[in-house]
């Protein structure tokens, strides 16, 4: 019984730590290194990036959620640090216009094709 519970604990802990690591990488990949040119924190070797990496690592270990960590960093450094642009008032156009354009393009295409089909009839 003891062995069983131990293996269960071990199994879950390994799963959890594995997930933690992925979470950290995902966060770091979505952060901009402010002192570099367009590089992500994950890719950068700069001093600033190394510090942020450690801070994110700590926060993940302390159990903060992804959202909380993004929020913490954007509060300190502005939305500029987030490569995954948050959906806010100032980014509605960015997030929705592509879909609108796709639908408009499709409608236009449909009209053109229909018009031309009718003519042949």
């Amino acid at each position: 019984m003891k062995i069983l519970s131990l293996t269960i604990v071990l199994f879950f802990s390994s799963v959890i730590s594995y997930c933690d690591e992925n979470k950290t990488y995902e966060i770091l990949k979505n952060l901009r290194c402010l002192v570099c040119q367009g590089q992500t924190i994950s890719d950068s070797n700069s001093d600033f990036a190394l510090t942020i990496k450690e801070v994110v690592n700590e926060k993940v270990e302390e159990g903060f959620s992804k959202k909380e960590i993004y929020h913490f960093l954007s509060d300190k450094y502005g939305d500029w640090i987030l490569f995954n642009t948050p959906l806010k008032k100032n980014s509605y156009i960015l997030w929705f216009v592509p879909y609108v354009l796709f639908i408009l393009g499709g409608a236009l295409l449909y009209l053109v094709i229909r018009k031309r089909t009718e003519k042949t009839k």
Partner: peptide, 30 residues
């Protein structure tokens, strides 16, 4: 459509910054 997405993603931060002074980043997740 692909062109429009890439163009919007590239230019939107420039336009937003110029018109409102707000700085945002658009990256691979977008």
């Amino acid at each position: 459509f692909f062109l429009a997405v890439v163009l919007i993603g590239t230019l939107y931060p420039v336009f937003l910054d110029t018109l409102t002074g707000q700085k945002i980043s658009v990256g691979p997740p977008y």
